[in-house]
Design a protein around this nucleic acid. Sequence first.
DNA 1: ACAACTCGGACATCGCATGTCCGTGATGAG
DNA 2: CTCATCACGGACATGCGATGTCCGAGTTGT
Lengths: 160, 160
Amino acid sequence: MRMSNGVEWALHSCVTLSQTQEPVPAARLAELHGTPPAYTAKHLQALSRAGIVHSTAGQIGGYTLTRPASEISALEVVRAIDGDEPAYRCAEIRQRGPLGIPAEQCARPCAIARAMAAAQDAWSLALAHISVADLAAAIDADSDGTAMADVRRWLTTARE
Amino acid sequence: MRMSNGVEWALHSCVTLSQTQEPVPAARLAELHGTPPAYTAKHLQALSRAGIVHSTAGQIGGYTLTRPASEISALEVVRAIDGDEPAYRCAEIRQRGPLGIPAEQCARPCAIARAMAAAQDAWSLALAHISVADLAAAIDADSDGTAMADVRRWLTTARE
DNA sequence: ACAACTCGGACATCGCATGTCCGTGATGAG
DNA sequence: CTCATCACGGACATGCGATGTCCGAGTTGT
């Protein structure tokens, strides 16, 4: 079980975008994070499709958050990048083999699938309770309150 | 984020093995579940390495559980097949780019990594509380108490 | 002692994630 | 109003890991 690597970049990008009101181009975010520009842009497009960020074209274009950072959960970002299908996909083994159960008796998911789904729900719930604003605040606290200020400064100075 | 498909087969195999004391060959389990024999054997080897099942060679060989099914958690089985490394692997983005933080200030994991780890812990905890015996009982209940009896009968008659 | 049956690890193959590119459209300047 | 510049958006290669398969080593019963 492995999560897409782009989830990390997307979360960092959202945290960065939460520090400004002006559009930030994908190339700028890639430079700040030290990630491949084209690939970073690809993930931002996924965020755009999911309605988490808004894209502005043109010379002063870029990406902005569509909502306050406190109203964007980490779960939304993860789902936008990694897809919303569950990690465990039941292949309906119970219907196969010499003791296969007819499909009409399989209205409910298999007990194993139910257990895995419950685990996934617990995982989702944990992420749903964390917002982008929470992450930004935690990162700021880790750096004694300088990290986000540095980001804001860098975003403005780089634009000059 | 996608879990290995073999997890399902391994869990079903453990449930089946919980219904008998005698060794069951990998080929027999594959036949019962309608899965590729060689690949099924591969996953059983992983369970063997993890100490969940015990293998017996020779003519009447096969696999048996090493412990009572009530003492084997679904989490153990999942980890044995899918690996025990976390789904989210932090690439330490905070150390990169123009605002990179020196490594000596990164003793604690990044706030984002901590959030993802907490979600993974919730997921693990949910699976740790479910035993193979629980799964067998739930599957039996779904079929009005006939499924496990059918499995036991099939295991003995097929051996004749 | 033999033969049959078992597990165990080493070897191909496929799909998806990763990474990259150019076309399209919009914006600001002249 | 026209044009040049810039940014997004989707379509195109590539690499690695999961999937799937095979044969050899070891053990047991005959």
